[in-house]
Computed example of a mutant assay.
Amino acid sequence: MGTIEFHQVSLHFPQAPRPAVKAVSVQIQRGELVVLLGPSGCGKTTLLKMVNRLYEPSAGWITLEGQDICRLPPTQLRQNIGYVIQQSGLFPHMTVAQNIAVVPRLLGWSRPRIQSRVEALLDLVKLSPGEFRDRYPAQLSGGQQQRVGIARALAGDPEYLLMDEPFGAIDAITRSALQGEILRLQHQLRKTILFVSHDVEEALRLADRILVLRQGEVVQFDTPFRLLTQPADPFVHDLLGADDRVRQLGLLRIAPAMAPLPNSPIRNGQPTLTPEDSLRDALSLILKTGFPEITVVHNGRPVGLLTLDHIRTSAMGGTQN
């Protein structure tokens, strides 16, 4: 379960001068997080909304795990698709628990099962059930509302998640924290996610693959690293800032760049990172602390050493891990 496939999908709104989406044919794999990226008006949200049939295609068709979604009643289809929008979309007259319970109630779950699910999901999104269960949306910060929105989208344990610029109206610090939460949840749950964004840094951080759209058409569908190092055309090159070496470092892990350092103690005050941190993190830490090298630590044990020369060599080599 979990694949989404677009088959020559187009949508032309009445009186519009050109199609909003034109002949899109791509396949999203099970458990993959795909970011739809492009300038305003490129068709990102339109394409997303066709998956849960908020819009119907003018031509072509969409399948979920091989099944044409037009053969399913919209209500049945949407029960297996979580949907998260900007500003959370919570019902203001309902408590946090009631908001999260909307889909389980529609599915006919028992009250004890719903209560258990609400508490589990609040724990999952790092909101204490005892503190937040009975609050109303107006009593939450923007970031807390978005966490509840994510919990509500996950409530029926859907196979698919559609996320339409969910962090677009949130301050930069909260946005970064929520991006980290999405990565953590995706590592834990492995949902198939379509995520609309106009933010290149967000796309590069979150995506397994990025679908770049321009005027409703697919320009390139590839991994973040390949988009940065092998852009299909000048539009992709300029959109992603493909000449930005520091941005490329954010996609390279420390592990293959470091020098092995078994059984060596950490010197007092020396900065540390893990093998899974990025070379961009490492460069930032070296510049911030003034230390010439970083100790790489795994499970509390030093396993490697990273210097500016290691970072430079990896950047020039241009290999992804």
Rank of each mutant, 00 (worst) to 15 (best):
M1P: 04
G2I: 08
I4W: 02
E5W: 04
H7D: 10
H7L: 11
H7Y: 14
H12A: 12
H12W: 13
F13G: 07
P17G: 06
R18C: 01
P19Y: 12
A23D: 15
Q29V: 07
Q29G: 10
G31T: 08
G31P: 00
L33F: 08
V34R: 04
L36T: 00
L37P: 01
S40G: 01
G43Y: 12
G43M: 07
M50A: 10
V51W: 06
N52W: 02
N52G: 11
Y55Q: 11
P57W: 10
S58P: 06
A59F: 10
G60R: 02
W61T: 13
W61Q: 14
E65R: 00
G66P: 06
D68W: 05
L72S: 05
P73I: 00
Q79T: 03
Q86I: 01
Q87N: 14
F91C: 03
T95W: 12
A97T: 02
A97K: 12
V102F: 14
G108Q: 09
G108I: 06
G108E: 12
G108V: 07
S110D: 11
P112H: 01
R113Y: 00
I114H: 00
Q115W: 09
Q115V: 03
E119R: 14
V125Q: 03
F132I: 13
D134W: 13
D134T: 05
R135T: 03
P137M: 01
S141Q: 08
G143E: 01
G143Y: 00
Q144L: 04
Q145V: 02
G156R: 07
D157N: 11
D157F: 00
Y160T: 13
Y160F: 15
L162N: 00
E165R: 08
A177G: 00
L178D: 00
G180C: 05
E181C: 02
E181P: 03
I182W: 12
I182C: 11
R184D: 10
R190K: 15
K191V: 11
K191S: 09
I193C: 03
L194V: 14
F195H: 10
V196Y: 10
D199K: 00
A203Y: 01
A203P: 02
R205Q: 15
L206P: 04
A207I: 06
V212N: 09
R214E: 15
G216F: 12
G216D: 12
V219F: 13
Q220T: 08
F221Q: 11
T223R: 11
F225I: 03
L227H: 02
Q230S: 11
P231F: 14
A232L: 09
D233R: 02
P234Y: 07
V236G: 00
H237T: 04
L240H: 01
V246E: 15
V246A: 12
L251M: 06
I254K: 12
P256L: 05
M258W: 08
M258I: 09
A259K: 14
N263M: 08
P265V: 09
P265M: 01
Q270N: 07
Q270E: 15
P271Y: 09
T272Q: 13
L273D: 05
T274E: 13
E276P: 02
S278Q: 07
R280S: 13
S284Q: 15
S284R: 15
I286Y: 05
L287F: 14
T289M: 13
F291T: 09
F291L: 06
P292H: 04
P292T: 10
V297Q: 04
V303A: 13
L305A: 09
L308T: 08
H310L: 11
A315N: 12
M316L: 15
M316H: 15
G318T: 04
Q320E: 15
